[in-house]
Amino acid sequence: MISSANYNWKVAISLVVLLLLSFVAISVGPTKITITQIWMSVTQSQDVDFGITQTLWQLRLPRIVMALLAGMALSASGGAFQSVFRNPMSDPYVLGISSGASVGAAIAIILGLNSQLLGIPFFAFLGATSALAIVYWLAFSLKQSEQNTLLLAGIAMSLMLGAIVSLLLVINREQMESIYFWILGGFNAVGWQQIYIVGPVVILSILLLFNYCKDMNLLSMGNETAHSLGINVKQKVAIILLISALSVSIVVSYSGVIGFVGLIVPHMVRFAIGADNRRLLPLAAIWGGIFLILADTIARTVIQPGELPVGSITALFGAPYFFFILIKKSRRHV
């Protein structure tokens, strides 16, 4: 029931799409790299132009890997948030968790911790969990039928945290550039060193999240139902949200706030393969990677040699999609 032949095919096709897209993403850009050159640089790197090897290994590949990791983390956590809050419109961005992480990161930059490798992630995690604590408290204080109020509260919190970042920016003019650069988000400054930190955290937290898919299915039916099926609701929700916050904050630490990925991707994947999280989350993670690699490739090629922030590309897709879900949801409740 969980993994059928049909499902395995869909996973296989998704992986092929991911691989093909990665090749395209490696080859396009100011320096064109052909498939032959990619092949050569793996097999006989001494025969390939040094500039090309450098672009491939030190610029494009880490960037693609980071986009993949970020997409995986944001989509898997988005799927988890949606089940836990029983709302297909919630995700770490909409509920203000990403903004919480960004306030934490901005504080770390102001304190001069950006030279230390773990300074920003640590503060980002603190920021994310503080925002999360408020969301968690609200979720259990509000009636189950008022989950849309939770979204509004999350959006209000995002706005407030955004304002705090702006404020920090203005009163710390000397660091304005580095904060602003980081707020715009994106994968342009990524090297292998960051991937060695982000990679294990993201992969570990996604594997942990997969472990809770059955519980997420029950939580999506309502707290009372979940409880009657043997779930310790508050504890499970707290664990799932903490794991999500961990992966989101590490991503936000190194690539800034990238919105809507966690909203769009799980929603689309659910449409294709159904709501069972045991199938949804793994596939959503893959497609999250695909989506962000695509968005990043568009962001860095559309106005060459300049670059757009990747967050603006995801928002261009994401905001209309948000409206689409909103309308679909309200029609269903008529």
């Binding site: 189950q144 299915n217 999506s220 039916m221 409880h227 009657s228 709501a275 069972d276």
Partner: peptide, 20 residues
Amino acid sequence: YVPQNTQLEFDFTVEEVVMM
């Protein structure tokens, strides 16, 4: 337990719900 209102926001099939 069958609560007064069960939230069914997501596209589970009937069989999947009963299997829960």
